[in-house]
């Protein structure tokens, strides 16, 4: 019940804050109209970055909606995520497929049922890059973000904020990232060159200062498989 209430509150907040992004996801061009300096963003995002100081883990649920070019209805998925400082991110999709994507600086693990595929960073340097972007977005590491992206956005009138990222170096199909939040990161919008738009809403986010337990850690290691 408590969870439901919080979800409702969150949705309510979202509706209030961003009337433009109501039902279906669509590109929010306005944030990119405001180039920002790293100093200004640090000030604007203080409410979100303060709880992250010393945070050992961030966990929560997510809902993803992907609007593809030429496809009439969006593709929806949901699940949960776990970010462990200095370790990596585990992204667990529950609907419509059970699958898990684990990104660390050393490797990428894709789990589907009993099947596990491990790609080491040495084989795929781009992976390290992806890991770094994810870590930087979750922990709002402005130095890293600034080295990879041109920065846009700032604080909104109601205390919430929007952060826009444009890759300095075209590395793939993603051309823009928008992060919205208040006390923490709440929504990530990714725009691709074709106009495909991915919107990820983060829910029930819990920030913990405690060291992660063994079960959490286990997600990030790949048992060596000997078929």
């Amino acid at each position: 019940m408590k969870r439901l209430l919080r979800s409702l509150a969150l949705i309510g907040c979202l509706l209030l804050q961003m009337p433009a992004h109501s039902a279906a996801p669509e590109p929010a061009a306005d944030v990119f109209a405001h180039p920002a300096t790293i100093t200004a963003l640090r000030v604007a995002l203080t409410p979100a970055t303060r709880p992250l100081q010393g945070a050992q883990s961030i966990r929560g649920a997510y809902r993803q909606q992907k609007q593809l070019h030429e496809l009439p209805r969006p593709l929806s998925s949901s699940g949960r995520f776990l970010f462990l400082r200095d370790t990596g991110i585990a992204w667990t999709t529950i609907e419509p497929f059970a699958s898990e994507l684990v990104i660390t600086r050393e490797h990428l693990i894709q789990r589907e049922g009993d099947n596990e595929v491990l790609v080491s960073a040495a084989q795929q340097p781009a992976l390290q890059m992806v890991a770094e972007i994810f870590f930087a977005v979750f922990s709002l590491d402005f130095d890293t973000l600034e080295s990879l992206f041109d920065l846009y956005g700032g604080a909104n009138a109601d205390g919430s904020w929007s952060l826009g990222l444009r890759p300095k170096q075209a590395a793939g199909s993603v051309v823009g990232i928008q992060i919205n939040g208040a006390a923490q990161v709440e929504q990530v919008l990714l725009t691709e060159s074709s106009g495909d738009l991915t919107r990820i809403d983060l829910q029930q986010v819990q920030i913990s200062q405690d060291a992660p337990d063994a079960a959490d850690r286990a997600l990030f290691s790949s048992p060596p498989k000997h078929p």
């Binding site: 593709l75 999709t93 497929f97 994507l101 894709q110 793939g172 990714l190």
Partner: peptide, 10 residues
């Protein structure tokens, strides 16, 4: 599957 997870963004 990639369409439903962040893997699809790479």
């Amino acid at each position: 599957r990639a369409l439903y997870s962040p893997a699809g963004l790479m």
